[in-house]
């Protein structure tokens, strides 16, 4: 299969999965006994005012009609309401939040940099941390370092992010007053402040996630170090550092990259707890708010976007697999 065909088939699969997710989101939402129009009806809410709100939001139509309208908005845009109060959402329209008075596309564009900043920084950190500790652990198997790292990684895997985040804030924010306790500063506004505000969330997320990578790397490393080609590398007189750093690590990174890609993909879709603790308004908190406020359009839009990122991460992992491991060809 050619690379182009591979990409095309993956894209087609992606579209189908996204459609299914959108459909399921709609279905689940309409099975809920709550009426989103009521939340924007005001208080007190009279029946005619409620009907007006429902009509404006398009909730008076059957769910499948709404779903089709949603899909249509994708290609031709949408208009909510009529006359002077109408709101236009240009194609591709992923929906419009009445609560936030913004199109979902715009909301995602605003919130994604926050989540991406958290996720990418933390991911790089935990990858470095996890792989280096995993390698150290494997090379000194059974030593004190190995055993303490193994214990720590068990703790890391099982610790709740919210709690560790709070502890981090109390210790470094309030007690030591070393870092800001929360908030996000855009990179474009001040790179230094951006970094300064992100350090703690990065560290907290990295500490929690690195544990998985420590264990994975350790296991893979132990296995790879027993391979014949490691013996060959040593037999040709390479220094141990090069044997480990080039011959072993490169092979260890193949499975690590798979897990990393998927982890990063799902984190990019929103780091809900981290965002909440550190008062950062990313995709996670947007989604959380949308659920709490029955904001269907945002809910479906952000869910789709997150799903898209995860699927994208899958594709990237597949492709990078081919780059990392010459034995695997795309689509093979």
């Amino acid at each position: 299969m050619t690379f182009a065909r591979f990409v095309l088939s993956r894209l087609a699969g992606m579209v189908i999965v996204l459609l299914a997710i959108a459909l399921i989101s709609y279905l689940i939402f309409y099975l809920l006994p709550a009426n989103p129009a009521q939340l924007s009806c005001g208080r007190p809410c009279t029946p005619d005012r409620l009907a007006q709100a429902e009509a404006f939001m398009g909730l008076d139509k059957p769910w499948w009609a709404q779903f089709l309208t949603f899909l249509g908005g994708f290609f031709v845009g949408r208009t909510f309401g009529v006359g002077g109060t109408a709101i236009h959402c240009d194609a591709p329209c992923f929906g419009y939040s009445f609560r936030l008075s913004e199109s979902v596309t715009q909301l995602i564009a605003e919130r994604a940099p926050v989540t991406f900043s958290i996720a990418i920084g933390a991911a790089v950190l935990w990858l470095l941390l996890g792989v280096s500790t995993g390698v150290a652990s494997a090379l000194r198997r059974g030593s004190l370092i190995d055993r303490s790292l193994t214990t720590l990684s068990v703790a890391g895997v099982s610790a709740p992010a919210y709690l560790v985040g709070l502890l981090g804030i109390f210790l470094f924010g309030f007690t030591l007053n070393m870092v800001p306790v929360g908030g996000y500063v855009p990179l474009t506004q001040s790179p230094v402040q951006w970094l300064w505000h992100l350090i703690l969330p990065w560290i907290v997320l990295a500490l929690l996630n690195a544990a998985i990578y420590t264990r994975l790397t350790r296991g893979e490393m132990l296995e790879v170090m027993g391979e014949d080609y490691i013996r060959t590398a040593r037999a040709k007189g390479l220094r141990e550092g090069r044997v480990v750093g080039r011959h072993a690590l490169r092979n260890v990174l193949i499975p690590v990259a798979t897990v990393f890609g998927l982890d990063l993909g799902s984190l990019l879709g929103g780091a809900i707890l981290t965002e909440k603790v550190f008062a950062m308004q990313g995709l996670g908190s947007l989604l959380l708010d949308a659920v709490g406020n029955l904001d269907l359009q945002v809910l479906v839009g952000v869910t789709l976007f997150s799903a898209f990122l995860i699927i994208l991460a899958n594709v990237v992992v597949d492709i990078s697999y081919g780059l990392l491991d010459p034995r695997v060809k795309a689509g093979g």
Partner: peptide, 22 residues
């Protein structure tokens, strides 16, 4: 280390696993 690969060359049993696949 200076001996390995210089004074002493080595050939192993399974050529497909003796070389690093990547």
């Amino acid at each position: 280390r200076a001996l390995r690969g210089r004074a002493v060359g080595t050939v192993f049993q399974e050529p497909s696993s003796a070389l690093n696949p990547v």
